[in-house]
């Protein structure tokens, strides 16, 4: 393709876009909205995953022994836990220590043991740290099956809830994006279809004088690409600005929420939007051309 021809195509696409300015704008906005939501869901999913991962890597397994377990067996159980693969540290907190911590929390002058009738109701406790958070579930199960162990607790509820949220988010996001994406695609198809329609005389003459099919198609492809990329640009801008704002607010207010600020991840999301916009634009044009531009 000659450079001059490329310029001609770009000009044609540009004029054509302005000729149906309102529809072009609607198509762009529609692409922008669906891509913005796509990006928002991507960032949300990244963050929830990140939070889940942070929580997971912080959790330890709390192992409660049966209350009546003799000290000797308790220590033997601790050894058994220590020998399990993937366990990095085991802290033993005997029941006396547990009671001391508890009464400290309640206030020192309180005679907790006396109030309990001289019987310590607490079990012996191990705090177990593991090398790989992903292994925590299997390890917890292995520990739970030891004979002296009453129960184990590793904050599974929180982590599992988060994982559930992620799954749910994925479905919701996919559904919503599919719907909005189809809407955007439809508007692009409509815009290009109208563009083809308003240039039908020119197209017919081009065919008669022997313009090649691709010469006729290129301006429409470019127009579709413009629409898609403009939509992606708008979505990317608002997403980037909005996310930066959010990160700053969270940093001030909710220091403990670990938001993703990895620049490469955000960049990747934005490139994803650009690719999505280009795809919607070109796919829309393709469908329009197949149906309305039999060259």
């Amino acid at each position: 393709m000659k450079l001059r021809t490329l310029g001609y195509f770009v000009r044609q696409a540009w004029y054509s876009m302005w000729r149906n300015a309102w529809l072009s704008l609607a198509a762009m906005a529609s692409v922008a909205v669906s891509l913005f939501i796509l990006g928002a869901f991507l960032l949300l999913a990244f963050n929830v995953e990140n939070i889940a991962r942070t929580l997971q890597s912080n959790v330890e397994i709390a192992v409660f022994l049966k209350v009546e377990t003799p000290r000797q067996k308790a220590i033997a159980t601790g050894e058994a836990i220590r020998k399990l693969p993937g366990v990095t540290a085991v802290d033993f907190i005997p029941k006396e220590e547990g009671l001391r911590i508890l009464s400290q929390q309640l206030g020192n002058e309180h005679d907790l043991l006396g109030a309990l009738g001289g019987v310590n109701p607490l079990p012996d406790l191990f705090r177990v740290r593991v090398s790989d958070p992903a292994e925590i579930q299997t390890l917890a199960a292995a520990i739970a099956s030891l004979p002296e162990v009453e129960k184990v607790n590793y904050g599974q509820a929180v982590v599992e809830r988060l994982l559930q949220v992620i799954r749910w988010l994925r479905w919701l996001g996919a559904g919503l994006i599919l719907m909005l994406g189809l809407g955007a695609l439809f508007l692009v198809i409509l815009t290009i279809r109208l563009a083809i329609y308003s240039r039908r005389r020119e197209i017919s003459i081009m065919k008669y004088v022997g313009a090649t099919d691709w010469f006729i198609r290129w301006p429409f492809l470019l127009e579709g690409l413009f629409l898609g990329l403009a939509g992606a640009g708008i979505a990317g801008f608002f997403l980037y600005a909005g996310y930066n704002f959010l990160v700053q607010q969270v940093r001030l207010a909710l220091v403990f929420v670990p938001l993703v600020t990895d620049a490469s991840l955000i960049q990747m999301s934005i490139w994803g939007l650009v690719a999505g916009g280009a795809f919607i634009g070109i796919a829309g044009t393709y469908f329009s051309m197949r149906r309305f531009l039999r060259v």
């Binding site: 001059r4 021809t5 001609y8 004088v209």
Partner: peptide, 11 residues
């Protein structure tokens, strides 16, 4: 001119 432009003839 249009008939020649669309054949990519130099101006």
């Amino acid at each position: 001119a249009f008939a020649l432009e669309v054949l990519e003839m130099p101006r």
